[in-house]
């Protein structure tokens, strides 16, 4: 039953060996750079910075979500609907502004410290969330809204029972994108004194110490990949199985 397609299982095996080989080579490489030694000697510091990093991401993403989703909802209500395209365009332009520029400019106005970092992360993280919330809510089929209204739902019921569940996948995608980008941007908060794993990366690069640098880069990369994976799971769990997306 398992080997119905020998050709494809053969290519599967090749891919598997390539993956194992790459992982092995990567492991050997970071070993040579002294990564594992460094981790063994400084578990406390890495742990502390990792927690700081998670805190930065957690706080800023939570704020972004709690501002962004309601903003997205407001922008699709009543008279605001007229400005929807305009707002989406504007947000699209904002999104092209590089993260480093946002952080740097925030610093010149607020100064140094975790507050600046969180402020910049919130601003940068807001755009994909609002954008997707607006796009998701605006994309809900008019027909089912009409059906809901005709069945006697008031606007609150319509929002919570019909619009949000149907837009949920796109809204969550925005949150996912925002959070994953946030993990990377948070690494730059070191520049404005925000702490986090960026400390190890920037210092490592400045000191030309690969082990130090990798001790920051690898956990940051893993955190981002993990977040992405985790949100994928959450999406499957929250979004109704009646809706299918490719």
């Amino acid at each position: 039953m398992i080997d119905v397609k020998p050709a494809s299982s053969g290519s599967d095996r090749i891919w598997m060996w390539i993956a194992i080989g790459t992982a092995f080579a990567g492991g050997a490489f970071v070993q040579r750079m002294g990564f594992f030694d460094f981790v063994q000697k400084n578990p406390g510091e890495i742990w502390k910075l990792l927690l700081e990093h998670i805190q930065l991401v957690g706080i800023s993403s939570a704020i972004s979500i709690s501002i962004g989703v309601p903003m997205g909802i407001l922008l699709t209500r009543g008279f605001m609907r007229r400005y929807r395209d305009w707002v989406l365009n504007f947000l699209g332009i904002c999104q092209t502004v590089p993260s480093l520029a946002v952080i740097a400019i925030s610093m010149t106005y607020i100064g140094i410290g975790p507050k600046t970092a969180i402020f910049a992360l919130v601003i940068y993280g807001l755009m994909p969330i609002i954008r997707n919330a607006v796009a998701g809510l605006a994309g809900v089929d008019q027909v089912i809204l009409d059906a809901g209204r005709g069945m006697g739902m008031n606007s609150r019921q319509l929002l919570f029972r019909v619009e949000l569940p149907n837009a949920m996948y796109i809204i969550l995608t925005g949150i996912r994108t925002s959070t994953v980008i946030n993990v990377g941007t948070a690494a730059m908060s070191f520049l404005v004194g925000g702490g986090g794993l960026g400390d190890l990366i920037f210092t490592g690069i400045a000191m030309v110490d690969p082990a130090y640098m990798l001790a920051g880069a690898i956990p940051t990369a893993c955190l981002a990949v993990f977040m992405n994976w985790g949100f994928g799971k959450i999406e499957k769990w929250i979004v109704s199985p009646g809706l299918v997306y490719d």
């Binding site: 027909v143 009409d146 809901g148 005709g150 069945m151 006697g152 569940p165 949920m168 009646g242 809706l243």
Partner: peptide, 18 residues
């Protein structure tokens, strides 16, 4: 009023998430 009237439309309008 609306809750007391059955409403069926051409495009059916079944809620896809339900």
């Amino acid at each position: 009023l609306r809750r007391s009237i059955g409403y069926a439309i051409q495009q059916i309008g079944l809620f896809p998430h339900m």
